[in-house]
């Protein structure tokens, strides 16, 4: 038995989320929100348009923001009650299965329809995604900043030093993108 993606997605999809009076949803030990994807993409486009000569810095900043968010939220996810109830009973291959469960949760919550293609434990991971935030964004070149940061965060959480000391152990590089006409987005996480 290993983590069965469909079972996780079905179980998590049944969970009712209720936002508080400020529109924030207390889940996974953090506050998450529900906003349209276009908001993030518009912000990205405006940042890049505001300083075109500083594109590499802005891109690195966007990936960093996603990474830090993913690292802390990710820890909340994999230690949450619902993750323990839904995913942990299926975990037989330790870290590998926790990662599989995390990507199933990504998909269930609509963050990215993604999954692991190849995993060399503690060394390398290849992820493919068939939908993600920036897939329909306007711009040039590979620009899945959010998923780059999240992939790196989850690999750090799984294989680097225990939270919160394992930050910046691994790095994620995007090699293919829906936004550039590829059939899927591809991301490779390796040691820094």
């Amino acid at each position: 038995m290993t983590v069965m993606r469909n079972d996780v997605v079905k179980a998590l999809a049944k969970v009712t989320v209720q936002s508080n009076e400020q529109g924030l949803i207390p889940e996974y030990e953090v506050l998450v929100n529900l906003l349209p994807v276009s908001l993030l993409n518009t912000l990205t486009e405006r940042l890049l348009a505001a300083a075109p000569d500083r594109k590499p810095e802005i891109e690195a900043g966007l990936v960093r923001a996603a990474y830090e968010c993913g690292y802390h939220t990710g820890c909340g996810i994999i230690t949450s009650e619902i993750f323990s109830e839904v995913v942990m009973p299926m975990v037989t291959e330790d870290e590998k299965d926790i990662l599989r469960g995390a990507y199933a949760a990504f998909t269930a919550w609509g963050w990215a329809k993604s999954g692991i293609v190849q995993l060399k434990e503690g060394k390398k991971m290849i992820v493919r995604a068939f939908d993600y935030y920036e897939a329909d964004s306007k711009g040039e070149g590979l620009r899945a900043y959010m998923l780059q940061g999240l992939n790196q965060a989850f690999f750090d959480l799984t294989y680097a030093d225990p939270y919160p000391d394992g930050m910046d152990t691994f790095v994620c590089k995007q090699t293919k993108g829906l936004e550039t006409g590829d059939a899927y987005g591809e991301f490779i996480v390796t040691c820094k």
Partner: peptide, 9 residues
Amino acid sequence: VGRDGFVIE
């Protein structure tokens, strides 16, 4: 298909 049922390609 991945071992978790993810349709890779």
